[in-house]
Simulated scan of single mutants.
Amino acid sequence: MRALYWNGVNDLRVGTVKDPEIVNPRDAILRVKLSTTCGSDLHFIDGYIPTMKAGDVIGHEFMGEVVEVGPAVRRVKKGDRVVVPSFIACGECWYCQEKLFSLCDCTHPKPELQEPLLGYPTAGIYGYLDTRDDVRGRKVGVVGFCMGGGMALATAGTYPERFEAAASFHGGNLANDAPTSPHLFAPKLKAEVYIGVAENDVSYPPAMAERLQRSLTEANVRYTTQTYPAAHGWMMPDFPVYDHAAAERGWGEMLALFGRTLHGGE
């Protein structure tokens, strides 16, 4: 088939590539009729994604006609015309049941590549840092924004021997009923924690805040939580709700946290 593929940094080409095959019983193959670019495609083009290799086909938002389906596919059939979003969801895991489709647990073909973002094995990153002559010591800090706030806490809890500090700004869903909820990492945390909260944040209601703080307190975690007079997303300069004064305050709190916990680099 013909496809747009990555041949190297800033080198895209259209050429003949291997036809796709059904690998998983839930797979479907489409004949693409129309595709478009996404901002994340820029990360492929400029080499930001380190796992890209020459020949990788790009274009993850498209529409077309179903030409083949796996034996476990029930909702679409050959000949159907469909629109495909940027993420794939199984429809069955906890996240999909909660309609958080972009967090699907089951459909990433190489989940180990996501683990550094989700608070699981990140030894490769540390191995790289440990080879750098310009990086002093082994202790590190982590900061997350929005959904990344929970990832920051989970990462610090997964590798407590490496993390001295963890910060979350306008983080959401920090204490929930999922078995991987960020608040469940509290007993493993050795890091000092800072939680910057947006006022009236529906993704972090008072009951959830109380649940997280109770977990941190019971685990004897050193933590500070502060509510900012700003909307969810206030730290992001490219967000409409960006609040410069509140963001400067947030950066100051984060740098102070890192300053008092990471100096010495032991």
Rank of each mutant, 00 (worst) to 15 (best):
C104I: 09
G265W: 09
K139A: 09
L129C: 03
K33E: 15
P237D: 08
G157S: 02
E199M: 12
T36K: 08
A54Q: 13
F185E: 05
D243R: 00
V69Q: 08
R249P: 00
P85G: 06
V142R: 01
E164R: 13
S86Y: 14
R136Y: 12
E92Y: 05
D130A: 09
E21K: 15
T180E: 10
W251Y: 14
A166W: 04
D201H: 06
A152L: 02
R211Q: 13
H43W: 06
G171N: 08
G47N: 08
V202F: 12
P160Q: 01
E112Y: 11
T122S: 15
S168L: 09
T51I: 12
E266H: 14
R211Y: 01
C90N: 08
Y223I: 07
V82M: 01
G79C: 01
D243F: 06
Q97C: 03
P187E: 08
G141P: 01
P25V: 05
I45S: 06
V9M: 01
H183P: 07
K188Q: 14
I125L: 14
E218Q: 14
V57W: 03
T224C: 00
H108D: 12
E115R: 12
N7R: 12
T261S: 04
K139R: 15
I125Y: 10
H108S: 12
K53M: 10
E199F: 02
L255Y: 08
V14I: 15
R74G: 13
Y159T: 00
A198N: 07
H183A: 10
G55W: 04
T180N: 12
Y159N: 00
R74Y: 02
D11S: 09
P85R: 03
Y5W: 11
R26A: 11
L100V: 02
M52Y: 05
K188T: 04
R74F: 01
M235G: 11
G259F: 02
G127Y: 00
A207E: 15
A246S: 15
A247Q: 05
G15S: 05
L12V: 04
H232L: 03
R26K: 15
A3E: 07
E218S: 12
C90V: 07
K18W: 00
A167L: 09
